[in-house]
Simulated scan of single mutants.
Amino acid sequence: MHGKNQPDPHNAWTSAIAALGLLDQPAGERVAYLWPDNVRAWSCWQGVQTQWRVGMGGATGLDYAGVRAFLDEQDLQRDERREVFAGIQACERATLDVWAEQRERQERAASGLPVPGRM
């Protein structure tokens, strides 16, 4: 049972954020809260997770043609579509930054170099 201020480790949002590597702790130990204005963008962000372009070094970014096709099906007004797309791009950039930091930490650890703490 979870108290009023205790996150539910089975919460889908917390699990999704952890699966993207955006949490240092396992799902359930931290909770992310969204501003109401960002809920639609976050929902669409979840919907485009199959649209990652992946190269030899890992994911390089989203396939924007696929993102646009997804957004075509979302019944968004023109201004809302722009806002949602900007939100998706912000999530994409943050995810790529976290993944790059994780790769750097893994490479440093594998080479025996000290691994700096996360700020």
Rank of each mutant, 00 (worst) to 15 (best):
A19H: 02
W13C: 08
T95F: 02
E104L: 07
M56A: 13
A110S: 09
Q46N: 04
Q49T: 10
W13I: 13
H2W: 12
A90D: 05
P7R: 08
V98N: 01
G47M: 09
D97P: 00
W99E: 04
S15L: 14
Q77W: 05
A16D: 13
H10V: 06
T50C: 14
M119E: 15
W45N: 04
W99K: 06
Q46M: 09
V39L: 10
G61F: 10
F85E: 14
A94S: 12
P116S: 03
A90R: 07
D8H: 11
W99T: 08
N38L: 03
P7Y: 14
P9F: 13
C91A: 12
D75Q: 13
D79F: 00
E92D: 03
R53E: 14
D8N: 15
P116I: 12
W52S: 12
R105N: 03
L62Q: 03
C44D: 12
A90M: 01
G87M: 05
R118Q: 07
R118K: 15
A100D: 04
A19T: 02
A19G: 15
R53N: 15
G112S: 07
R78N: 02
H10M: 15
L62T: 04
D63S: 12
S15W: 01
V84L: 06
W35F: 04
G112L: 04
P7I: 12
Y33S: 12
G66R: 08
Q102E: 11
D79Q: 05
M1W: 13
M1T: 15
T14C: 03
G21S: 09
A32W: 05
G3E: 09
W13S: 14
L20R: 10
E107Y: 00
N38G: 03
P9Y: 13
Q106S: 10
L113S: 11
D79I: 02
A65E: 11
Q89V: 11
G47F: 09
A41M: 10
Q74R: 04
E83R: 09
R118G: 06
G3H: 09
K4L: 10
G58I: 09
E92Y: 01
Q51M: 15
V98G: 00
M119Q: 12
Y64N: 07
A12P: 09
D79L: 07
M56F: 05
A41W: 02
G21T: 03
E29R: 15
A41I: 11
G61E: 09
R40L: 11
Q6W: 14
G28E: 09
Q25V: 03
L71D: 01
Q77C: 01
L96T: 03
